[in-house]
Design a protein around this nucleic acid. Sequence first.
DNA 1: GTCTATACCTCGATAGAC
DNA 2: GTCTATCGAGGTATAGAC
Lengths: 196, 196
Amino acid sequence: MARKQGSHSDITGPKVRDAALRLIARHGCAAVSMRQIAAEVGVQAGALYNYTPDKQSLLFDLMCTHMDELLAALADAPIYGTAMARLEAFTRFHIRFHLPRRDQVFVSYMELRNLTPENFAKVEALRRQYEDALETILKDGEAEGVFALPDTRVSTLALIALLTGITNWYRANGRLSIAEVEEIYWSLVRKAVVAA
Amino acid sequence: MARKQGSHSDITGPKVRDAALRLIARHGCAAVSMRQIAAEVGVQAGALYNYTPDKQSLLFDLMCTHMDELLAALADAPIYGTAMARLEAFTRFHIRFHLPRRDQVFVSYMELRNLTPENFAKVEALRRQYEDALETILKDGEAEGVFALPDTRVSTLALIALLTGITNWYRANGRLSIAEVEEIYWSLVRKAVVAA
DNA sequence: GTCTATACCTCGATAGAC
DNA sequence: GTCTATCGAGGTATAGAC
């Protein structure tokens, strides 16, 4: 803690990212100025450039970090067993991971169009990895004969849209707990995919 | 057609709205300048203010128009009969209406946060009307005993998210026609809600 | 590492000529 | 109805003192 005054690299860095995430989720990247982010952190605008070369890199960093954390958490999640068991585990994992991360989800979906083409391609590749994890489960379930799907790829995207849509209405202090939301959505997902 | 040169009110007006819609859908409202919109239309920036008092009104107008058209089309759609028949008709209507309107859907969902509180409330009220149309169908189906849902309100929002998500991946020249997409999603929706 | 100050640019919106 | 010209504000990013 004995630290030279004015030197806060390891404190200010995360604060910059937190403030940027919150403000961009709320107002959109183009609508938020570097001055606003700096004010939220409690520094002057020029100081931000010790932590990011420019605004685009800051946005890209936020989105990449989100996707990296998602894929790392997915790799650690207990998803194994039959296709049905894995689909349930994936569904619950998706909800549990995304619901407490409203801002990250918002930014990762809405600000794709503000990325440079190179950065966009990188984020899309990460997203595709995540989608493929679900698609593999669905394919396995079809092979087992336990799932019946009209189109495996489209069903993958449909289920992800269904689940991610929760972040648009869920409120932490609303009438439903995360556990209750999990039950509701697992019920819908299971019925939608199961063979008749 | 014998029209005084320089007088194009009924031509330029729609062109302004079309250009604004396309550019805002692509880059976001805050990222698009009035000068860019004017350039797309082929006039100077100042001329835009003959068609909108300010940028906020232009955005609000785009979103309101979309919701009004949606509700008018819904009122005209052939949605009647049993709850199952109405759910199928609603599903197909939703897909048919939204798929050719990518830009409108994008703007209506992503730019809500850039509306003033008053304008936001108005658009939300329109959206709520649309959601309630589906919720009524689901409630009726439960009363008939033909649907079994874990939570009617949440299921309503879940189905709308599922269906609207199509606009994120559908391409007019892709491997699937709109009719095929309808079949795939109706299959998923029907199975998700039907009583066992 | 943060500050102040600033270069340089683009923004939304308006005024007045045509 | 559109143009040119412009105002005042606020944008990103940098320079140099501390």
